[in-house]
Simulated scan of single mutants.
Amino acid sequence: MITTTLAGCLEDDEPAPTIVGEWYAWSDDPTFIAPTLIFQSNGTVISQSAGEPASYSNWSTNGQELTIADGDDVYPKIHTFALNDNWLFIAVSKGDACMVMSRLLLSQEDFISEAENLTLPTICHELNKYWNSPPPEIYQYSATDHNNNTGNGTADNLMVLEFVQAPGDLNWANIDIQITGADGVPHTCMVDGSTDCTITQYGISDINWEASEIIHLSENGADLCSGGQCTFDINITDARSGTTLTGTASVIVE
């Protein structure tokens, strides 16, 4: 009798929820129907966004802690997460606004409707409604010299950027960041490593520059600053409207 009862309980038990699988974020491109994050059981996470190549990182969990790191990442991204039925909530830390994703591929309208009516887990102070993108003129940013010294290499950290005012996240597909040195040659900075100025993110979402996220601009295979002092003008525009964001006009890098 005891054995039969225990077996019945085990058969009725549902498997514990797991982050492994495909997760869809809301996209402003209705033709983009690929999952934004794919957590594989082998510890690899694949990140995808419209118009950008997929990126691969490593992931692990410990309780409600989610760690995502590139192979050579000295400072892995550590976040808090929670699962609720077919929804994944991720916060930079407990109590922050949460990024939300669905296991199901939903239309833009259905995603917003369902997400905005979810009961938030305790890790979330509020929902990050990244689908409500405010106009770019509302955003203001600051830029400062990175605390690492530059030299004759081609991988120097140049500067640190963050929002001073940001009512929401901005999708990277809509942002154009350029820096121009004393030679007058503009260098476009990208998150995918395809240009000689690369952007390193320290937030949750690879598809957005988040309102509270710090980013680093660094050399990527080109010696943009050979030591001493280098002055760079900064220009950040919204690619949709051509509007220039307000912020630090130039930074002295040394």
Rank of each mutant, 00 (worst) to 15 (best):
D12P: 00
E254D: 13
S57E: 02
A69H: 06
G221T: 13
M101T: 04
D156Q: 13
A239W: 00
A182H: 02
F39N: 01
D28V: 14
I179V: 15
I177K: 07
I199L: 07
V251F: 09
A69L: 03
G153H: 04
N62K: 10
Y202G: 11
E254M: 13
T237R: 14
D145W: 08
G247C: 08
I33N: 13
P35N: 05
P121V: 05
D110H: 04
L10S: 07
F32V: 07
A54W: 04
C124D: 01
Q108S: 09
Q140S: 14
Q64D: 07
T243R: 12
T248R: 02
E11P: 00
P186G: 13
P186M: 14
W209Q: 07
A34V: 04
I38H: 01
P15W: 06
I204M: 01
Y130K: 01
T248P: 01
T154I: 13
I19A: 02
I207W: 01
T154Y: 01
A50C: 06
D233L: 12
P53H: 14
C9Y: 06
I78C: 00
I207A: 10
N62E: 10
T248I: 02
S57V: 05
M1D: 10
S102N: 06
D96C: 01
T67R: 08
A211R: 06
Y130W: 04
T200D: 12
S102E: 05
I138A: 14
M159S: 07
S113T: 11
E126T: 11
K129E: 11
D196S: 14
A173I: 07
I252H: 00
D156N: 15
S55T: 15
P35Q: 09
V185K: 02
I204E: 01
E52A: 15
W209Y: 04
I138Y: 06
L83T: 02
G227M: 13
D72H: 14
C230F: 05
N208K: 05
D29Q: 15
S41R: 12
I33A: 13
P30L: 13
G203D: 00
N171W: 06
S27G: 05
G227L: 13
T44R: 06
Y139R: 06
E213K: 03
M1G: 12
N84E: 03
G63A: 07
A182G: 00
L217F: 12
D96H: 03
E116R: 08
S133V: 15
H125Q: 12
G63C: 05
T243V: 15
W26R: 08
S41M: 08
P76D: 07
G193T: 14
E52M: 11
A54P: 06
A25N: 05
L217A: 12
H79V: 00
S55E: 13
P15D: 07
W59Y: 03
V160K: 02
N174Y: 03
E137V: 12
S133I: 15
N148Q: 03
S226M: 04
T144V: 09
P121H: 03
D223G: 10
G242H: 03
G203I: 05
A239S: 01
G193D: 07
K94E: 09
Q165H: 11
V164S: 09
D13K: 15
T200V: 11
I2S: 10
V45M: 01
S241A: 03
R240H: 02
E137M: 14
N220I: 10
D13H: 14
G151M: 08
T36C: 11
P17C: 02
P136W: 12
W209P: 01
T150R: 11
